[in-house]
Amino acid sequence: MASVVKINVLTVPTEQREVLEKRFAARAGAVENADGFEWFELLRPLEGTDQYLVYTRWRSEADFEAWMAGSMRGAHGQEGEARKPAATGSTVWSFEVVQTAAPRSTDAAG
């Protein structure tokens, strides 16, 4: 079974960038213990766009769906918090991992 990747594309106005990054920093640990969770990265745009990418990798679609149905709501502070969203738009892209590569290990004694 291939892992799945979910990329949440967040449109974030310049004045909200710091707010978004602080909120993600504050949620550290919220997804890491989810069953089937494999990886998370928050990607800040360098130039030409106002879109952040929230990259998560999951063992399966079912694991992602289970997290969405349960723990994700708490991770995003929706439990009674009435605060303005940092993003003005959001789109989720879904992918299946078909190839991966990692750096080759180097032999220091070599």
Score class of each variant (00 low, 15 high):
residue 22 K to G: 13
residue 22 K to P: 03
residue 22 K to Q: 15
residue 22 K to Y: 03
residue 22 K to E: 15
residue 23 R to I: 07
residue 24 F to H: 13
residue 24 F to T: 04
residue 24 F to V: 13
residue 25 A to I: 05
residue 25 A to F: 00
residue 25 A to L: 11
residue 25 A to W: 07
residue 25 A to P: 06
residue 26 A to Y: 00
residue 26 A to H: 03
residue 26 A to Q: 10
residue 26 A to F: 00
residue 26 A to D: 13
residue 27 R to P: 03
residue 27 R to N: 02
residue 27 R to F: 05
residue 28 A to N: 13
residue 28 A to P: 00
residue 29 G to L: 11
residue 29 G to R: 10
residue 29 G to N: 11
residue 30 A to H: 06
residue 30 A to V: 05
residue 30 A to N: 05
residue 30 A to R: 00
residue 31 V to E: 04
residue 31 V to S: 13
residue 31 V to R: 07
residue 31 V to C: 01
residue 32 E to T: 14
residue 32 E to H: 11
residue 32 E to D: 15
residue 33 N to S: 15
residue 33 N to W: 09
residue 33 N to T: 15
residue 33 N to C: 04
residue 33 N to L: 11
residue 34 A to G: 04
residue 34 A to Q: 14
residue 34 A to R: 12
residue 34 A to Y: 02
residue 34 A to V: 05
residue 35 D to V: 10
residue 35 D to K: 11
residue 35 D to A: 12
residue 35 D to C: 01
residue 35 D to Y: 04
residue 35 D to W: 00
residue 36 G to M: 00
residue 36 G to D: 03
residue 36 G to F: 00
residue 36 G to W: 02
residue 37 F to T: 04
residue 37 F to D: 03
residue 38 E to P: 03
residue 39 W to M: 08
residue 39 W to V: 03
residue 39 W to R: 12
residue 39 W to Q: 12
residue 40 F to M: 14
residue 40 F to D: 08
residue 40 F to T: 12
residue 41 E to N: 14
residue 41 E to H: 10
residue 41 E to K: 09
residue 41 E to D: 11
residue 41 E to Q: 14
residue 42 L to R: 07
residue 42 L to P: 07
residue 42 L to E: 09
residue 43 L to E: 03
residue 43 L to F: 09
residue 43 L to H: 09
residue 44 R to N: 12
residue 44 R to T: 15
residue 44 R to G: 06
residue 45 P to I: 05
residue 45 P to C: 02
residue 46 L to N: 10
residue 46 L to A: 14
residue 46 L to E: 14
residue 47 E to Y: 11
residue 47 E to Q: 11
residue 47 E to G: 10
residue 47 E to R: 04
residue 48 G to N: 05
residue 48 G to Y: 01
residue 48 G to C: 05
residue 49 T to N: 03
residue 49 T to I: 01
residue 49 T to L: 06
residue 51 Q to K: 14
residue 51 Q to P: 04
residue 51 Q to S: 08
residue 51 Q to A: 03
residue 51 Q to N: 14
residue 51 Q to I: 05
residue 51 Q to W: 08
residue 52 Y to A: 05
residue 52 Y to Q: 08
residue 52 Y to G: 01
residue 52 Y to W: 06
residue 52 Y to I: 09
residue 53 L to R: 15
residue 53 L to F: 15
residue 54 V to W: 02
residue 54 V to A: 14
residue 54 V to S: 11
residue 55 Y to G: 03
residue 55 Y to S: 09
residue 55 Y to A: 01
residue 55 Y to I: 12
residue 56 T to L: 06
residue 56 T to I: 07
residue 56 T to A: 09
residue 56 T to F: 04
residue 57 R to A: 07
residue 58 W to S: 01
residue 58 W to H: 02
residue 58 W to I: 07
residue 59 R to E: 11
residue 60 S to P: 05
residue 60 S to C: 00
residue 60 S to V: 03
residue 60 S to F: 01
residue 60 S to W: 06
residue 61 E to R: 08
residue 61 E to Q: 12
residue 62 A to I: 06
residue 62 A to L: 05
residue 63 D to A: 13
residue 63 D to V: 00
residue 63 D to H: 06
residue 63 D to L: 02
residue 64 F to H: 10
residue 64 F to W: 11
residue 65 E to S: 08
residue 65 E to M: 13
residue 65 E to G: 02
residue 66 A to W: 00
residue 66 A to M: 04
residue 67 W to L: 09
residue 67 W to A: 03
residue 67 W to M: 08
residue 67 W to E: 08
residue 67 W to P: 01
residue 68 M to R: 15
residue 68 M to G: 06
residue 68 M to A: 15
residue 68 M to H: 10
residue 69 A to K: 15
residue 69 A to S: 15
